[in-house]
């Protein structure tokens, strides 16, 4: 089964992500060593916490460049929750702080009239996903496929381009449906390029 490398963001609920991949039979590594991440095939950028803190931490370790390069080479990357947001240009949560800029979108806060944070299960496609967020991307940016969900208007639930998959929800906490999402990310990444299949 596949080797999964989870970027250790320090605090985020990495234990849940770790356990979810182990249940799929993957061999899982947790690291913040840029060298190891740059050599990894399947990389997960999890995220709980604040946008500015997340970017500072990635920049301090040089992981920002490693992640952008990984995506440029279309090697498999999964961004979860704040992980999706960090891939964007910037966020209303931390004005003035640049994101990784892979996704050409700004992250904004849910309208003040709606329950915030969004804590709980919301419909995505034919299933239900668990969300835990106060910020989100409002529409699917050019060049990406994606799915929308609704909470005080539509927002982006997931985005996909090549072997990069980023989701605002937590697949690791979304029961059997979420396990299916993780499995498809792995399977699609393998199918997308048999020449450099990573097993």
């Amino acid at each position: 089964m596949s080797d999964i490398t989870i970027i250790d963001t320090g605090i985020a609920n990495t234990a849940s992500v770790f356990a979810a991949f182990e249940r799929l039979g993957c061999s899982v590594t947790l690291t913040r060593d840029p060298q190891r991440v740059s050599e990894a095939s399947f990389v997960v950028l999890p995220g709980v916490g604040q946008f500015g803190e997340g970017m500072r931490s990635l920049r301090a370790s040089g992981l920002d460049r490693v992640i952008v390069e990984h995506i440029k080479q279309d090697r498999p990357l999964l961004g979860i929750c704040l992980g999706l947001q960090l891939l964007c240009v910037g966020s209303a949560e931390s004005p003035g702080i640049e994101g990784l800029g892979v996704i050409d979108a700004m992250v904004t806060r849910f309208p003040a009239t709606i329950r915030t944070p969004q804590h709980g299960w919301n419909r995505v496609g034919n299933g239900y996903a668990y969300f835990s967020n106060s910020y989100r991307v409002g529409s699917i940016p050019d060049g990406w496929d994606g799915e929308l969900s609704e909470h005080g208007g539509v927002f982006v639930a997931s985005l996909r381009r090549g072997r990069t998959y980023a989701c605002q929800f937590h697949p690791e906490l979304s029961g059997a449906w979420g396990a299916g999402v993780l499995r498809s990310w792995i399977d699609n990444a393998k199918e997308a390029s048999p020449c450099c299949a990573v097993e």
Partner: peptide
């Protein structure tokens, strides 16, 4: 519990 549980 975390090892077996895939809900929050």
């Amino acid at each position: 519990v975390r090892r077996v549980l895939s809900i929050p």
